[in-house]
Amino acid sequence: MAASMTNADVVLPGDVLTDRLKEITNKKVRLGPGLRWQSKDVVACKCGVLKSREDHAFWIDNHQRRYIPAKGESIIGVVSLKAGDIFRVNIGSNLPAALPYLSFEGATKRNRPNVQIGDLVYAKLLVANRDMEPELVCIDGSGQSNGLGVLSREGFMFKCSLHLCRKILSPDCSLLRVLGKKIPLEVTVGMNGRIWLRCRSVNDTICAMNAILAAEYTPEQNLKSMVYKIFGGVAAV
Rank of each mutant, 00 (worst) to 15 (best):
173 C>H: 11
193 G>S: 05
237 V>G: 07
108 T>H: 03
58 F>C: 08
33 P>M: 03
79 V>R: 01
133 E>H: 07
203 N>L: 14
202 V>K: 15
45 C>E: 12
234 V>H: 13
190 G>Y: 02
201 S>N: 06
187 V>D: 04
141 G>M: 07
118 G>W: 02
189 V>D: 08
188 T>V: 15
228 Y>M: 02
124 K>W: 00
43 V>E: 08
34 G>R: 12
59 W>N: 09
116 Q>S: 12
11 V>P: 09
219 P>M: 13
153 R>H: 11
99 L>K: 01
114 N>I: 09
220 E>K: 08
185 L>G: 03
25 T>G: 06
20 R>T: 10
164 L>R: 08
221 Q>R: 14
60 I>H: 10
56 H>I: 10
197 L>H: 08
107 A>M: 05
54 E>K: 07
43 V>R: 13
96 P>E: 13
65 R>W: 10
185 L>H: 08
90 N>V: 03
180 G>S: 13
103 S>L: 01
47 C>R: 15
207 C>H: 12
155 G>P: 05
61 D>W: 06
128 A>G: 02
177 R>S: 14
236 A>C: 09
179 L>T: 03
80 S>R: 14
30 R>S: 14
191 M>G: 04
6 T>K: 02
67 Y>P: 07
90 N>Y: 06
206 I>K: 09
58 F>K: 13
19 D>G: 04
62 N>T: 14
51 K>R: 15
195 I>W: 02
71 K>N: 04
133 E>V: 05
68 I>V: 14
74 S>L: 12
46 K>W: 05
66 R>G: 04
184 P>A: 08
73 E>A: 11
16 V>C: 13
209 M>S: 07
98 A>T: 00
9 D>P: 01
190 G>Q: 04
8 A>R: 11
131 D>G: 07
43 V>H: 04
208 A>L: 03
176 L>K: 06
50 L>H: 03
218 T>G: 02
205 T>R: 14
98 A>Q: 07
207 C>M: 11
210 N>K: 14
212 I>Y: 00
65 R>K: 13
164 L>I: 03
134 P>Y: 06
193 G>E: 09
231 F>K: 05
44 A>L: 09
134 P>M: 11
37 W>K: 13
105 E>S: 05
59 W>Q: 09
130 R>Y: 06
87 F>M: 08
236 A>K: 14
68 I>N: 14
113 P>N: 02
